[in-house]
Structures are given as structure tokens and as C-alpha cells.
Design a protein around this nucleic acid. Structure first.
Lengths: 172, 172
DNA sequence: GGAAAACATTTTAGGCTTAAAACAATTTGG
DNA sequence: CCAAATTGTTTTAAGCCTAAAATGTTTTCC
């Protein structure tokens, strides 16, 4: 019968009169479930890309970014979009240039900047992979109704905003 | 006015009479948003763990698994729970044993098996980190109402089940 | 104009991660 | 019993990833 202490804790938490160690077990469970879903799907996509096309997920992701930018992107743009470090992109790009999927040139107006684009080969291969990739995703989410999908989109948008706000609080 | 073609496509997709390239753009967007949320939160947690405790996220995750298992776990158990490869766990454990956070011994009943446990130091350090970690998670999800959290939990459970089913279809 | 700040990228050092092959121990089924 | 299959772990080779320092370039602003 934890009724008394519950009341006390709730009072504390509502009035903010005292610092009580609050219970955030639900949020923690939510985070672990979110992570599980992502890891599960990501692993599945990674394996299929490897089996079907002998390509790694990061390479696919990078090509996906470039496919949406016919005029090319700078390395910084790519790094921000992919949410990975600059140095990571440098290596990824190097390998994709070597394999003939990417074209890379120094900007004419700013010699600090490197602009990368998909080559004809890179674009063709990406489109081929992307078509199949889309069916994998559809299959992975197949048991969600259209309403579920909409509702998840809404709640994840809220989650993203909340997390960005929290990150900004720490790193203003 | 794409009404006509829409009707045709819907008929096809409902009756399954013809194979039409269906549109799964919504599911794709959902996947990208899920990935963004996870990457955002994971990066934030990784950075805070490093700054506050000079520990990496994988080390923290491994210790979290062991904290829930006072009698220890086998490397396979850990690898399944963390959803990472066996070889990955081998290296992670090696470094944590070296730093004095883990104890590792060969099972007496099955000499293939390695059982690992948190040492006293490991448990103490983990508890200290976990307490703070929980407040970070709470803060990252702060803008979600309790109802949002419940609803997300429900939808992610459904997502997890769907993805597991899809993975099992491919790898029976 | 020129020093200082800001920016874009690369390098460095170390750790993480995977898939596949190799190794070792146990279990299974004839 | 014992060969074959299975199970648990490690090794290997390659690539991914990060934070921080270094390098080169441009902008700011006195």
C-alpha cells in the first residue's frame, strides 16, 4: 500500500517545492523500444542490401542523399543530412569515388568546398537499389494500417521536436 | 486531376489482379523519421556519456544488460539482447574486463560458455551513470504527454512485431 | 590592409561493427 | 559408440564512426 508516499511524491512533483527523484521508467522503456525497432529494421535492410547488391548501408544512404540533389552537395551538407561526422563522410566519399559512383570537384567560387555528385553509373545503380529497397520497407511495416502510419508520423514528429529542443538546451 | 488513374491503381491493389508498382512513399517517410529520431537521441546520449563519464555508449549498453542479470550472462545472451554480432561482444567484453568493470569465467558445466558479470566497481559505476542517464532520457522526451508515450509504446510494439514477421519471412 | 574569427575539409588515433571463417566443445541420431 | 550436426566463442579482414587536432580558405571587422 504505497498510497501515502505516492501522494507525497505527486505533490512534490506538481508543486516543485522539493527535489524528489522522479520516476521516468516509462520514458526509458519507450526509448529502448524505439531503439529496438530501429536496430531491427536497420539490420534487416543492411543484410538485404548486402545480399542483393553487395553494397553497405552507409554507401546506400549517401547515394540516397545525392539522388535528391541533382546539382550536387557539399561534404558539409551531406554530413549534416546524414547526421554523421565530417571525417566519416570524407572516407565514405573517397571509396565511392574510387568505385566510380561519385564525382567530386572543388567549388570554383570557394576553394574550401568540395562538391560531390552521383555519376551516371552511381545514379543508375542507386535507382535500381532504391526501387527494391522501397518494397522491403513496405514489407517491414506491412502490419501497420494507414492510420497507424499517420499516427506514428505525428508522434515521431513530436518526439523529434522534443529531442531537438533538449539537445539545444544543452548546447545553445 | 488524377482521379481516373487513381481508381485504376486502387482497383489493382485491392483485387491483386495485376502487379502494379505500388506507392509506399508514406512507409518510407515513416522509416526515415524513425531513423532520425533514434539517431538524434542516440547521438545526444553518446555525447553526454562521453562528457560526463568518459564512457562509450556500447560499454554503457553492455553494462546495462549485465546490471539486470546478477547471476551473469553468457556472451551469446548478451549478443542477442544487444542485437549485435558475436565478434563485437568479444572485443567489448575484453576491454571492459581490462578496465576492471567485468568479471569473466568459463562455465563449469559447459566449457564452450563464458559467463560475464559486473564487478563491484562496474556495478557502482553503472548505477551512478544510469541514474543520470534516466534524467537525460526524461528530458529528451519531455514534450510528450503520458498519453503520447503510451500511444507510441503501442504503435512501436506493433511496428516491432511487423518487422520481426517480415524478417522471419525472409530467413525462416 | 591585415589580424582574428569562422568555415570546410582532412587527418589521426582509437574504438565499434559486421560477415565469414576457424576453432572448440557438446549434443544428436544412427 | 561415434560421426555429423549444432552450439558458443574467437579470429580475421574490411569498413564504419567519432572526437579532436591540424590544414587550408574565406570572411569579418577594426
Amino acid at each position: 500500500m504505497p498510497a501515502v508516499s505516492d501522494c507525497i511524491n505527486m505533490l512534490d512533483s506538481e508543486t516543485k517545492a522539493v527535489e524528489t527523484p522522479e520516476d521516468h521508467a516509462e520514458e526509458l522503456r519507450l526509448w529502448l523500444r524505439l531503439l529496438t525497432c530501429t536496430t531491427l529494421i536497420e539490420g534487416e535492410v543492411r543484410g538485404r542490401l548486402r545480399q542483393r547488391f553487395d553494397v553497405t548501408l552507409p554507401r546506400f544512404d549517401l547515394m540516397a542523399q545525392l539522388d535528391k540533389a541533382p546539382d550536387g552537395m557539399t561534404l558539409s551538407d551531406v554530413s549534416k543530412r546524414m547526421m554523421v561526422s565530417n571525417g566519416n563522410v570524407t572516407g565514405l566519399v573517397e571509396r565511392l569515388v574510387d568505385s566510380g559512383h561519385l564525382d567530386r570537384r572543388t567549388s570554383e567560387t570557394d576553394r574550401r568546398v568540395q562538391v560531390i555528385r552521383l555519376t551516371k553509373l552511381g545514379r543508375a545503380e542507386f535507382r535500381r537499389m532504391a526501387a527494391e529497397h522501397e518494397t522491403w520497407i513496405a514489407d517491414l511495416f506491412a502490419d501497420l494500417s494507414p492510420k497507424d502510419v499517420r499516427e506514428l508520423m505525428r508522434l515521431l514528429a513530436k518526439t523529434k521536436a522534443s529531442a531537438q529542443k533538449s539537445a539545444a538546451r544543452r548546447r545553445p
